[in-house]
Design a protein around this nucleic acid. Sequence first.
DNA 1: GTAACTGCAAAATATTTGCATCCTT
DNA 2: AAGGATGCAAATATTTTGCAGTTAC
Lengths: 139, 139
Amino acid sequence: MVNQAESILKSSALSITSSRKKIIDVFLSASTALAHQDIEKLADQYDRVTIYRTLQTFLERGIIHTIPTTDNTIKYALCSDDCISSGHHHDNHVHFLCDQCGRTLCLDDVMIPAITLPKGYSMKAINMVVNGICKLCRA
Amino acid sequence: MVNQAESILKSSALSITSSRKKIIDVFLSASTALAHQDIEKLADQYDRVTIYRTLQTFLERGIIHTIPTTDNTIKYALCSDDCISSGHHHDNHVHFLCDQCGRTLCLDDVMIPAITLPKGYSMKAINMVVNGICKLCRA
DNA sequence: GTAACTGCAAAATATTTGCATCCTT
DNA sequence: AAGGATGCAAATATTTTGCAGTTAC
């Protein structure tokens, strides 16, 4: 039984350091996408700068991805296995941003429908974000 | 023939000032969505703080909206007529972010397809952003 | 041992707030 | 005239950069 964080780092050919493991663990145990600030709080033994640099590295390697939100914040989430494997990032599920609790959730079961672009445009990635009230806030 | 910027301000019950008119004109003559920085450059006779406050006001009144992008920037665009009218903002077309020139375009002819959310979730707004290479960069 | 990673300090940017003055109605 | 909008100054917050010391391999 190998540590999951370590195995993620290994498959991206990154050296295994305690800050990187910690930040991956934070993502693994989070149920939602996280803002830089959230990560700072949850991994507060590490320098803010290290977190910036680590997130940057993870983005480049496709370990995490950003979720575009209308509320002027940037949220990060772990990529699912199949989106790391291909080398090319593609996240094909819908994201949900709750206007009440502010959480960003991956709706893994809701696929993004196909669309047709006008002539001359090529598509590399597609994102779909729904704003509203989530299950928990509504209850 | 009334000035278009003035008529937009009037229908939102905002007082007509030169900075507000200028900023609306900037949007009207832009072919793409604009970042705060772009607006600063295009309306550089006005204070940076005024631009912050004006954009904030316009967002609240539904004169402009933000477009979520994966590249960690916030882009603003004028709402189309029909999205102002209802009081409730709803932008039902797809946005395109060109990875090469960085421009954000409204694909007015491409509608966002309907999706079904899991039980317990309610939808207030939906956004769809496609990344890729635009028509002009490809040519 | 070497290259890469981290922490600290500091610089550069971006955003927010307070207040006095000016402009719109 | 009154309320709201603007500009300036300054306080905060965010992000980037340089460098020296430390760690992974």
